[in-house]
Design a protein around this nucleic acid. Structure first.
Lengths: 250, 250
DNA sequence: TTAAGTTGTTCTCAGATTGAGTTGTTCTCA
DNA sequence: TGAGAACAACTCAATCTGAGAACAACTTAA
């Protein structure tokens, strides 16, 4: 940053007031559908609209810590379960008029969680709910949260290509079929079971075998499946490619 | 964000003071080396250290607009030349103690520019210079700018894989060899000329032919090269793959 | 003017990867 | 017990990649 501005004297009160919040696009998979954690606003502006969980950054808190705290508050999650949630920064949104009350810069985060219990009613009167992403129209969403969610979904789809983060939607041990279901849900495409299987096992460090198998076969038949846990790779080489789609504009 | 906080009364003065700045990691290629725009600090803290160009967001300015303004101020660039610079958001950095004076959240941006003239001395006493990225050690850099630069470089390397943004380092018309030189300097690997050529021409929308050729052959011989301009693709399908390297930890 | 060396571009070919389909076996449900 | 489902392995053709060779068009230096 530019020291001139500071040298002029840097009493915080001298600067235009900007509030910094952290918002979280928290994704999970329930019943083979991608769900998003949202909060119903009980007061204007955007009363009755859905909004992302979030709030002001605390004075001594890092941005990521703030996002994790907000996530914990709204989901009631803690300890090991909270630690297993993948959390990354998505981007910052700071259009001057995005909040009608004052200048707010929101640092949005993206979270991948395994299927979680329904949010507990908070001390706040917030109504927090996991909603299927398909059930949302931009009009029902507060502020620019529709845009943030779109960016989060695209980021999630893309992250599955070149990272092993799909495993973060699953329990610590999982089958290849469960892993494939994650990809199919997030990408919205059916995948070739045989090829997916071959690919997952051939990419180094994606998954490692536990040696165990499921107790039962599939719900509608089939043999018991082998169980795997996440491997130690942070990136997939070579990546899994999404089926070619129409050139996405952004 | 959480309306409870707001409903309690939202006079800006009631909140802990947070300043929001935009910083820019501006990259260009000079003499086959990747260069970075830096400013020498003339006052504490970090007096004499190098810092990224940046400054406070103006009250009615979007984050990206602020970054572009800072870039314009430090490079003296404007108009069409400025518009041709690629600018994207890199991420926000908000550790509570990253600036010793007060809480500052910096929204870092990443810029790709064609070879630009040396920065003009600003109205500020700032000394702005293009420095080769290899000439930098983390100790010479102010604040957490070393980290921001690392993140920016990694983002740049990765963006060349799946976007046509390498063309943003070049003039509006360029040869395949010039384009390959961009990849080689950013990635730090020599690439196979024939394979690169084949790949660039086969990826739809990466480049399109102008029909023209260079006036002269290469400096040390060789035929005249065909000239191309950027195509209309925003993403490369299939992507160009970086030569496999040791698993990068982050 | 010529020779030597460099470079842009195209081609070849083997190896790896992918997409699509098949097979065999194990399991659940009716 | 039989039918259907699903896991896992395999096959095969099409495509893509890495590595090298070929060749013509150009440069500079002799």
């Amino acid at each position: 940053m530019n020291e001139q501005d500071f040298l002029a004297g840097y009493d915080p009160r001298d600067y235009p007031a900007v509030a910094v919040t952290v918002d979280v696009v928290a994704l999970t998979i329930r019943e083979d559908a991608l769900h998003l954690l949202l909060i119903r606003r009980g007061a204007p502006p955007y009363e009755g609209h859905w909004a992302l969980p979030g709030g002001f950054v605390h004075p001594d808190e890092d941005l990521a810590a703030g996002a994790r705290r907000e996530l914990a508050e709204e989901t009631g999650l803690g300890g090991e379960r909270l630690r297993r949630v993948h959390l990354e920064q998505l981007g910052s949104y700071g259009a001057p008029d995005r909040d009608p009350r004052m200048r707010v810069v929101s640092v949005a985060h993206l979270a991948f969680a395994p299927d979680l219990p329904d949010p507990v009613a908070d001390s706040d009167a917030d109504e927090a709910i996991w909603l299927p992403v398909t059930a949302l129209t931009s009009r029902q969403l507060a502020f620019d949260h529709g845009r943030i969610i779109d960016d989060g979904l695209e980021r999630a789809r893309s992250k599955l290509e070149y990272t092993p983060l799909a495993t973060r939607f699953l329990a610590p041990e999982f089958t290849v079929t469960e892993l494939r279901a994650v990809y199919e849900t997030v990408w919205g495409h059916p995948l070739h079971a045989g090829n997916f299987h071959r690919k997952v096992l051939s990419v180094p460090g994606f998954v490692e075998s536990t040696g165990a198998s499921t107790e039962r076969g599939g719900a509608r038949g089939g043999p018991r499946a082998k169980l795997y846990r996440p491997g130690d790779a942070r990136l997939l080489h070579p990546a899994l490619l999404r089926p070619a789609r129409e050139e996405s504009i952004r």
